[in-house]
Nucleic acid binder design. Structure first.
Lengths: 216, 216
DNA sequence: GGGCTGTATACTGCATACAGAATGCGCGTC
DNA sequence: GACGCGCATTCTGTATGCAGTATACAGCCC
């Protein structure tokens, strides 16, 4: 028999703020006033501060000493660096998945890949969600929790630049690359899986870098 | 003209606690009582709590809801996972360093590698410090700050298991591997540099895994 | 003696208080 | 009209207060 444990307020605040940042509800650069957030969420400043400290440690917020917190602003160079690390991590995840993924994980991955083809070309938000699910499943299939943790950290950070990539999630090239990654993993070919994953992310890196350059 | 800004208390507390954990002054599993730490450091509980939140987010501390904080205990499986990710990251760092490191960075790396050979076989602490400096310089030479950040995060975590690896930092094999990494980078050979770095870390992974197994 | 129960104590989680720094604005000066 | 200065206001950073839960221990029952 179990009773519902009241979640910690600081956890709830953290979750809420993190999703607000990742979903773009709070734009990069936006100030996050402690009293304001505390008021909106119906809590005191204490748990808000603790959530902000976590977000800063994670790289989603910036704490300017004496001058408050704001949503992290990533420079184009920083975005490229994050993509670069993500490429290496995801290549490793694909390599490990090709070596060790369980039957269930492989089925799930195949299912999610197939789902990518059935999303309306117009529904950008759903495309992003489906893409996220596929990549998350890929990394989970690596069986390495630390790798998974770092991946999600990078993924959240890249959400800060998502508007430069979201329309590419459904392109024929992207779909073909997803399939290539999946097939290499199903075939149990670690090197090919790693190369395919790396190439996929590197292409996004270049794409987003180009768009950020144009935007400036 | 610059004046000394008083550091934030929470930063000082964070630095102090982090080094206490990394240096082994606070052993894995040790309880960290807020009032006790606050008393020792001469501050209130507030900055201590904020430091603990950061350490937990970083994976160096565990916050048990309602039951306080303790120094993170890594299971043998977790240690292996961290090594596995570190191998991938450091391989990537070596690859990038071989491609892009500046003259100054290469000189520094060569200098630190040479220094590894001149440390008394008995001074384990200095061996560990010199090894840390070499690897840090390698990762810095990648030119990727995000990669560097994640590397240091993993390195701090592995400090929790350092006693299983520190005596290997000076072995002939280790020295030969360091030299192989350096030479590949100096030769501008990304693939060879990556492979050498990966092999080096993977060997430590296996070594530490074996010792953890024996210890249990 | 072992185990349960009640109570005292310790510690956390959140709220609030307070001091000091940063920001913005109006006024005066040139 | 532009600039600088000073004050009011806002907000952060740290300390402290308070309620509630976890832990430990003593006493009691069997």
């Amino acid at each position: 028999m179990r009773v519902e444990r009241p979640l910690l307020v600081r956890e709830a605040v953290y979750d809420r703020l993190k999703s607000a940042i990742v979903e773009g509800e709070l734009a990069p650069g936006a100030r996050m006033l402690e009293v304001e957030l505390a008021g909106k969420l119906g809590v005191s400043r204490t748990p808000v501060r603790e959530a902000l400290v976590r977000l800063a440690q994670e790289g989603l917020a910036e704490l300017l000493p004496g001058r408050g917190a704001r949503v992290r602003v990533l420079s184009p160079a920083e975005v490229s660096e994050v993509y670069e690390v993500r490429a290496a991590l995801e290549a490793e995840a694909a390599r490990l998945a090709a070596q060790r993924a369980s039957e269930g994980e492989l089925e799930e991955l195949a299912r999610l890949e197939a789902a990518l083809h059935r999303i309306p070309k117009t529904d950008l938000a759903e495309q992003t969600r489906a893409d996220t699910r596929f990549h998350a499943a890929l990394v989970a299939a690596s069986g390495n929790r630390e790798l998974e943790r770092l991946f999600h950290q990078l993924d959240a950070k890249l959400a800060l630049a998502r508007r430069y990539s979201s329309d590419e999630n459904q392109s024929p090239k992207t779909l073909a690359e997803h399939r290539a990654i999946l097939e290499a993993i199903l075939a149990g070919d670690p090197d090919r899986a790693a190369a395919a994953a790396r190439a996929h992310i590197e292409r996004f890196k270049a794409l987003v870098a180009r768009r950020l350059k144009e935007a400036s």
